[in-house]
C-alpha cells in the first residue's frame, strides 16, 4: 500500500506531457466528479452515523457495567440489620464485585435536586440504598431476587439499566451497518469509476493506437488516464465532503433527555474523520482506473 500511495503522489505531481496525450473527455470527467461528490456526501453521513452510534454504545455499555442498586425499605429499627444482611448476601453473590451502603450525605445529594439541600434524611423514613458494582459477566438477577426475598424481605433490587442491554446491541449493530455502508460506497465508487474509465479508454482507442505506434508502454498510456480520474475523484469527493459536513453541522441539535441521545453530528476530533474521504476516493480511483486501463490495454491487442 505504501508503494501505491507513493505512486499516487508521484502521479499527482504529474507528467504534463503524458497528460496532454489524451484529449479531455467532458462526459466521463463530469460523471466521475459527480459520482465522487455524491458518494462522498453519503459517506459523510455513514461516518456520522457510525461515530454517533459508537459514542452511544460506549456510553450505554459503560452505564450498564457500572451499577445497579438495592433499595431497602423497612421499619427504622430494622433498617440497619437488613442492610448488613443484604450486604453480606451481596458480597457472596457471584458476579458482584462490591456492595456498599450509601451514606446519609450521598443520599441527600441524590435527593437534593428534588427537595433542596436541607432535607433531614436521618429522620425521614426513606429507604437505604446499596450500590452494587458488577463484574463483566454480571450476576443472575432472578437468583439474587429469590435469595433476597428469603433473607432480606425489605429489599428491592433495581437493575433498571438492564433494559438498555438490547439497545447497546442495537447501537453496536447500527455502527457496524454504518461501516458496511461506507464499504459499499467505496465499492460503488470503484465500480462507477471503472465504467467511466472504460468508456474513456474506448473513446480514445485511436489515441491509444497512435501512442502504441510510437512506442508508448502500457503503463505510460494508463498513467495518462489514471492521473485524470484520480484528480477528478479527489476533487469530486472534496466537494461532496464539504457539502456533507455542512449538512451535518447544521443538523438540528438532538442532544435531549439529559444526553440520552448524543446527536448525529461529529464531536471534537471526530470532525477530522471526513477529511480522509477525498484521499480515500483518490486511492479508490487510482486503483480502479489503473486496473481497468491495464486490463483494457492488454485485451486490445
Amino acid at each position: 500500500m505504501k508503494v501505491r500511495i507513493g505512486l499516487l503522489f508521484g502521479l499527482l505531481a504529474g507528467d504534463p506531457q503524458a497528460d496532454k496525450a489524451v484529449p479531455p473527455t467532458g462526459f466521463t470527467a463530469r460523471l466521475t466528479v459527480f459520482t465522487s461528490a455524491a458518494m462522498a456526501f453519503l459517506a459523510v453521513f455513514a461516518l456520522a452515523l457510525s461515530l454517533a452510534t459508537d459514542r452511544l454504545a460506549t456510553r450505554w455499555a459503560a452505564e450498564l457495567a457500572r451499577t445497579s442498586t438495592l433499595r431497602i425499605s423497612a421499619p427504622p429499627d430494622q433498617i440497619d440489620a437488613q442492610t448488613r444482611a443484604a450486604i453480606r448476601l451481596l458480597e457472596t453473590t457471584p458476579g458482584i464485585i462490591a456492595a456498599r451502603a450509601l451514606s446519609a450525605d450521598e443520599q441527600r445529594a441524590l435527593l437534593e435536586p428534588w427537595f433542596g439541600p436541607d432535607l433531614p434524611v436521618e429522620t425521614l423514613p426513606i429507604p437505604q440504598l446499596i450500590e452494587i458494582v458488577e463484574d463483566e459477566a454480571g450476576y443472575d438477577p432472578l437468583g439474587l431476587r429469590a435469595r433476597l426475598q428469603a433473607e432480606v424481605p425489605g429489599a428491592v433490587l433495581d437493575d433498571h439499566t438492564r433494559w438498555r442491554q438490547p439497545l447497546v446491541a442495537a447501537a453496536g449493530r447500527l455502527r457496524f451497518l454504518g461501516l458496511v455502508a461506507i464499504a459499499l460506497i467505496g465499492l460503488s465508487t470503484a465500480a462507477m469509476i471503472t465504467l467511466a474509465a472504460q468508456a474513456a479508454l474506448a473513446a480514445n482507442a485511436q489515441v491509444i493506437r497512435v501512442l502504441r505506434l510510437v512506442g508508448a508502454r502500457d503503463i505510460y498510456i494508463a498513467r495518462a488516464f489514471v492521473r485524470r480520474f484520480t484528480l477528478r475523484a479527489m476533487i469530486g469527493a472534496a466537494i461532496g465532503m464539504a457539502a456533507g459536513m455542512l449538512a451535518v453541522a447544521f443538523l438540528p441539535q438532538a442532544d435531549m433527555a439529559g444526553g440520552f441521545l448524543t446527536g448525529l453530528g461529529f464531536q471534537g476530533a471526530g470532525w477530522l474523520w471526513p477529511l480522509t474521504i477525498p484521499p480515500l476516493a483518490a486511492v479508490v480511483a487510482f486503483v480502479a482506473t489503473r486496473a481497468a486501463a491495464l486490463r483494457t490495454l492488454r485485451e486490445q491487442s
Binding site: A21, P23, L211, R212, L213, V214, G215, R217
Partner: peptide, 20 residues
C-alpha cells in the same frame, strides 16, 4: 514497445493525435 522506439514507422493512414 521498447523495440518500437528503434523502428520508425510511417503508417499508411498516418495516425496523429488530432488534438495536439
Amino acid at each position: 514497445a521498447l523495440a518500437r522506439r528503434r523502428i520508425g514507422v510511417v503508417h499508411q493512414d498516418c495516425q496523429f493525435l488530432d488534438h495536439l
